[in-house]
Design a protein around this nucleic acid. Sequence first.
DNA 1: ATTCGCGTTGAACAAGTGTTTAGCGTATGA
DNA 2: TCATACGCTAAACACTTGTTCAACGCGAAT
Lengths: 225, 225
Amino acid sequence: MRSSADDLTTRARIRDAAIGLFGRDGFSRATVRAVASLAGVSPGLVIHHYGSKAGLREACDQHVLAQTATQGREKADPGSTGRLIQDYLNNPDQYTEEIAYIRRSLGDESDAGDAFFDAVVNQCQDIIHAGIEAGTIRKFDDIRSIAVVIASNSLSILMLGRHLSRTLGDPAPEPNGIGPDLLRQLTLPLLEIYTHGFYSDARFLHAAREALEGNNTNNGREHAP
Amino acid sequence: MRSSADDLTTRARIRDAAIGLFGRDGFSRATVRAVASLAGVSPGLVIHHYGSKAGLREACDQHVLAQTATQGREKADPGSTGRLIQDYLNNPDQYTEEIAYIRRSLGDESDAGDAFFDAVVNQCQDIIHAGIEAGTIRKFDDIRSIAVVIASNSLSILMLGRHLSRTLGDPAPEPNGIGPDLLRQLTLPLLEIYTHGFYSDARFLHAAREALEGNNTNNGREHAP
DNA sequence: ATTCGCGTTGAACAAGTGTTTAGCGTATGA
DNA sequence: TCATACGCTAAACACTTGTTCAACGCGAAT
């Protein structure tokens, strides 16, 4: 999608360079001068186009958000997350910059991160609704909370990808740690848990349910991980 | 544990101030001057004690790591994560700084973050082993991968706590987003998934298993979220 | 042809950064 | 008692940071 380099407006080239650096180094570590240098322009021009570093960041936020939003709507139409993942695996280098940028947005507190997270939760909720109607997903009482849990679990791969590939000894990890090897190794374990559960029976569930229903004041005996 | 303020060495006071600021603002945003001011000393003294800002960070890493390590060993002896969570809920303010620090360590690439993640994975692995022997956890083939998945899912609450409490509308969120209300709302959904699964049958699992076994080259049809 | 507007640069500025240095006071040991 | 070491500060230094400003080139409109 991002064509080689020169057919873009200078303005757009600056923005793309900023997205790359903001994602790689974080907003505060990445300097205006570095962005300008990567885009092949002078620092002054960056400010001239975007007013300030904060303005540049806002433009990057909007751009990444818009791009991922269209991708999300295009490809995940009827609960088929698989196609999106497959598409990512076929050409991962195309998305690494955006993935890194989103990871930074989610960690650092930013409106764009908030919006992205909410979008993922809503998408999960839609998928769950559709899955329940189609009979592929169990019927849950509190769909919203389930969606939040699923979204959080899924995004953990994005947030912790580096650590995951590191502890699993991925021989050729992507820049974000999320490569084919990682997904191949984690797919079956995750699906096993999502299919047959993690605990062998409902003891913990019942205990927690009773504790939470009986003692609603404060120190309910939670259990997890 | 951290007593009011003044009975600590100045050196320790500087370190604790740094832990607080590094966790709240991140390593690069937190300045030596801010640390010094919070500790009530001059900027020069910070350098005098720790050599450089990087040295200060290393001391903070070691301290937080050591503290969480002893806590992990003390309280999670036989698979009882519940006690640790309960202890956190009873006095959350005691751990918020360390939690924030660890979250930053996991996001920003640092040796301390690596070590912490590995420790969590190993602890999960021990818990799973014990649970399988005790019959409370299902018997898995690839325990290591299961442990990584469980660790990743658990840490996602830490990494995304702010977003979780935000989308769930937590009325009184902790600084890290992880408060009693959040855990109360997420415990049952999580335990339901961990007990009865997320999908209603093994269709997805079987499909993925066949795809991964049959086509081991590259474009295996993964599925998730 | 001249003027206007705009994209662009290079140098400079002001503020903030980590770090250094000289020196102060004070407790401790010879 | 004196000297030494140590905790500590204030000021300064060198450098990076985001941002500003005057000027330049050049295409388009008048």
